[in-house]
Design a protein around this nucleic acid. Sequence first.
DNA 1: CCAATGCATTGTTACCTTGG
DNA 2: CCAAGGTAACAATGCATTGG
Length: 246
Amino acid sequence: MWAIGVDLAWSPRNPTAAVVLRWDGDHWAMEAWAEDLGSDAEILEFLAPYREDPCVIGIDAPLIVPNEEGSRPCDRWIAARFGRYHAGGYPVNRRWLRSFGGLRGEALARALTTGGFTLQPPLTPRAPIRAVLEVFPHPAAIVLFGLRRIIRYKRLSRGPWVRGLRRWHRQLLALERFNPPLHWPETWRSRGRGNLTRRSLKAWEDRLDAAFCAYIAGYAWFHGPAGYEQIGDLEHGYVLIPRHPV
DNA sequence: CCAATGCATTGTTACCTTGG
DNA sequence: CCAAGGTAACAATGCATTGG
């Protein structure tokens, strides 16, 4: 079983990151990653070795956007529930997304469903499914880590950015002790030091986000419906948020 | 109580600084 | 001097908080 996370850029001109986790019987292990994917074709090529196998893919991008303008119900619900943690999302609609050159999430999801994937979140724990899910890291972090407020680590000025990323990194390392555990490779454990250019900070951020998306997808697969909450539906758009199984 | 502000999201654009 | 890299401001929408 594979669990894959994709931190999808809105435009193919900006880099997309992806992380592949392998199920090793009692934990997830890092199999592969990329942080500079461009076009949809490039992303699908990176996924090619895995997407014929049982596989759950978590994508940080709107996959189902039926509304031409305004916002999706699930985005409003997310904002209502997680707004006080500052984890409200950015409301999306087709017109707005199109202005950036296309509905990428939808296109990617369609390519995958054409290849046999479903958008339906896992109904049974640890069943060998092939599913692609919309995930949203910030609310997921609030729930999984019990935060009172999101960790800000995106697009800040340099100092706060580095601090935020280090904190986010340290937080994610704790997944090692979660159920199921995520085993980090040694190269992922070292905290950013030395020549942290804007480019390398962005790459680090994208990598961490993709890894978290992969874990969220793998978490939903492992626990089944007890381990996630589906906000919204397949018709109007939904977001999958993990929850602690009771 | 209502209006204004702030914050969440990403990409583009204009402008500034730095390096070679 | 030009290229490249960095930064600030803007765009659209909704919720939470704050001020009057």
